[in-house]
Design a protein around this nucleic acid. Structure first.
Length: 416
DNA sequence: GCCGTTTTCGGCCCGACTGTTTTCAGTCG
């Protein structure tokens, strides 16, 4: 349902529809994706649908149409006019609805393949806003899109963040590098990597040296954009990295802004406006005289908005803004809440560390208990413990427990 | 098309970067 509503928003945009109506479809798509209400089951209950923020009378009707017919009339109408392959064009970088509409009306281009052909045939030259650079950008965009599309596992993004961070910190005048975006929010995947950088080298008007240094990072495949405050590039694995240089006075505002999520930020800025403020990546400022209210830390920005600061993991616009205003944020499970580990392999089979090392690491992590769960011998396991080695292993566990002052009160051996 | 702590009408988030349009439109995050 969310996808169909989002597609309808895209089609409306290509069609030149009202921007606010388009935004309503986007908002409804997000609402459909995030709600815990079973929309198919609730389709007959209009009042229930209307309780969902972003769903009004029209969207309730749309959801009901999707539940019964699998689509909605407006989407069908627009698809009949434009065809579904137009939607794929929007996925190319730099390609928005206005450009798609232009290509469609001026050159009858309705798909990525047709666009590639038109570029090869030189049919784009002479169209409005289609200079050499723009055409080359599209050509490159098609290449990139066909090669790599999608999101990256968080550990991939994390490793890239560490490597780039170490490189950046070597530049004189760069003092701090902080990953923002989905990496900071602890999502499982990241679409791109946002790195915020501050220090004397990031002072306004004096960023040129630092910008050049960023753009000289050895792992860069190609530079997407390079300005006064920002450098965007692709790494060899296709991951897009946005590096932003900020004065420390704005660091909190920028960190808040680039951590997102987008939905969280939109809600937060609406709240700011209602309170007579405007929130940007530079500061929370008064609407009337533009004077800064808060900017240096996230804490003071949230406080000025009448809210508690919240961990980045909560910022998905799923009720956390209201909860923070009521001072009723939930406590997140932290690493320190983990009491033990019930699945550990040692180097007796396919682990990498000894019993003693595992036990010491567990103590250091504050665990109350661990379970050593090495493999027994079976057909699939080449290095599993036979009965004799297993008994020796247990004896060694008892020995380590004794050496480390344990009472081995709960020690037992179960053959699995 | 949605929404409401002055409103059922009249609003709706904000700024950077790019390319090409001599003053700005389009895209992006």
């Amino acid at each position: 349902m969310a996808r169909l509503l989002a597609e309808t928003a895209d089609l409306l945009e290509i069609d030149g529809g009202d921007g606010f109506r388009i935004r309503s479809y986007r908002r409804a798509a997000e609402a459909a994706e995030q709600t815990t209400v079973d929309l198919t089951a609730a389709a007959g209950d209009t009042a229930r649908l209307l309780e969902i923020p972003g769903i009004g009378k029209g969207m309730a009707t749309n959801l009901q149409a999707i539940a019964t017919s699998g689509t909605l009339p407006l989407r069908e109408e627009l698809l009949a006019k434009y065809g579904s392959s137009l939607l794929e064009l929007l996925k190319l970088p730099g390609m928005g609805p206005k450009t798609v509409a232009l290509l469609w009306s001026a050159a009858q281009i309705a798909s990525i393949d047709e666009l590639a052909e038109a570029i090869e045939a030189g049919r784009l030259a002479g169209l409005p806003r289609m200079g050499d650079k723009q055409i080359e950008k599209l050509r490159k965009g098609i290449e990139d899109y066909r090669r790599s599309a999608g999101r990256y596992r968080i550990d991939v993004a994390e490793e890239a963040a560490q490597r780039i961070g170490a490189y950046l910190l070597a530049f004189p005048g760069i003092e701090k590098v902080t990953p923002a975006g989905s990496l900071r929010r602890g999502r499982e995947t990241a679409g791109d990597l946002d790195l915020l950088v501050t220090g004397p080298a990031c002072a306004p008007e004096h960023t040129a040296g630092a910008v050049d240094y960023v753009a000289a990072y050895p792992g860069i495949l190609n530079i997407i954009a390079k300005g006064e405050n920002k450098v965007s590039f692709h790494l060899a694995n296709g991951l897009q990295v946005d590096v932003r240089l900020l004065p420390s006075a704005s660091y909190g505002a920028a960190l808040q802004y680039f951590t997102g999520s987008k939905a969280h930020n939109v809600s937060l800025r609406q709240r700011a406006l209602k309170m007579g403020y405007t929130l940007s990546e530079w500061a929370l400022a008064r609407l009337d005289d533009n004077s800064t209210v808060a900017a240096a830390t996230e804490e003071e920005i949230y406080a000025a908005l009448g809210m508690d600061w919240m961990p980045a993991e909560l910022r998905e616009n799923l009720g956390e803004i209201e909860a923070a205003a009521r001072h009723a944020l939930p406590r997140l499970i932290e690493k320190s809440d983990i009491r033990g580990d019930l699945h550990m392999h040692t180097n007796a089979t396919d682990g990498h560390n000894t019993i003693r090392e595992m036990a010491e690491a567990a103590v250091a992590a504050g665990f109350g208990y661990i379970a050593i769960t090495d493999h027994s011998k079976n057909l699939a396991m080449t290095n599993g413990l036979d009965d004799k080695r297993a008994l020796e292993h247990v004896a060694r566990i008892k020995e380590v427990d004794r050496e480390m002052g344990g009472a081995h009160s709960g020690l037992r051996w179960d053959r699995g």
